[in-house]
């Protein structure tokens, strides 16, 4: 464990609390892509299967349980409790275009041809692109509530912080995970446009609005 990873994970935790706060305080999931949230739940469930047969640490165990539980809870909130506030007509990204290629990539790139390792690879690739339905929705509506942009910023910061973590681990532990690093770089790159608007507008106190 190093500080980059710790702060990355904390940022990830923060993003989930911000999202829950947004849903509870506005009593609405307007502006949140159900598809992205469903993809994240899929990512956590397929990646953290090792909960059942591998012990890493109490930290690791607790975080994994939290991510699975919170992502399922968010799906419940969106699907049942605040269902009327979710508008599927603007959440139109075709997730099969993401799932298909991720299955193929996992079959091509993995560390071991076993069910858990294939699912692990799949989850890594899927996480890299899971934010796309959300960003697509943002692009379509052209604006976002400030609290939603804080959620996205915290999520993006989590991924960005994993990059110095890998550099640090390369030098201190001689450890490289090419699949996670490649997917992580792609994932972080997807946030660049968003970060630009977030830093130049939201953090200057303006509303998140994309130029027409």
């Amino acid at each position: 464990m190093n500080l980059f990873r710790l702060f990355g994970d904390l940022s990830h935790l923060a993003s989930i609390f911000i999202l829950l706060q947004k849903i509870q305080s506005t009593r609405s999931c307007r502006g949140i892509s159900f598809k992205t949230q469903a993809l994240y739940a899929t990512v956590f469930i397929t990646r953290y299967l090792d909960l059942f047969y591998e012990w890493v640490s109490l930290y690791n165990f607790t975080m994994k349980v939290f991510f699975i539980a919170s992502s399922c809870y968010i799906l419940y909130l969106m699907k049942y409790k605040y269902r009327p506030t979710h508008d599927p007509s603007i959440d139109t990204f075709r997730v099969e275009y993401l799932l298909g290629p991720c299955v193929v990539l996992a079959l091509l790139f993995h560390y071991k041809f076993s069910i858990p390792e294939l699912l692990w690879s799949f989850s890594i690739f899927l996480e890299a692109v899971a934010i796309l339905p959300q960003l697509f929705m943002l692009q379509r509506t052209g604006e976002a509530e400030t609290i939603t942009t804080h959620y996205l910023a915290a999520l993006g910061a989590y991924r960005a912080l994993y990059i110095p973590n890998w550099i640090y681990r390369y030098f201190t532990e001689d450890m490289v995970d090419p699949i996670a690093v490649t997917a992580g770089l792609v994932q972080t790159a997807l946030y660049l446009d968003f970060f630009y608007v977030y830093f130049t507008k939201v953090l200057q106190g303006q509303k998140f609005e994309l130029p027409a």
Partner: peptide
């Protein structure tokens, strides 16, 4: 030793 991904990461 098996080569596997960074399973200690989240």
């Amino acid at each position: 030793e098996e080569t596997t991904g960074a399973h200690d990461e989240l």
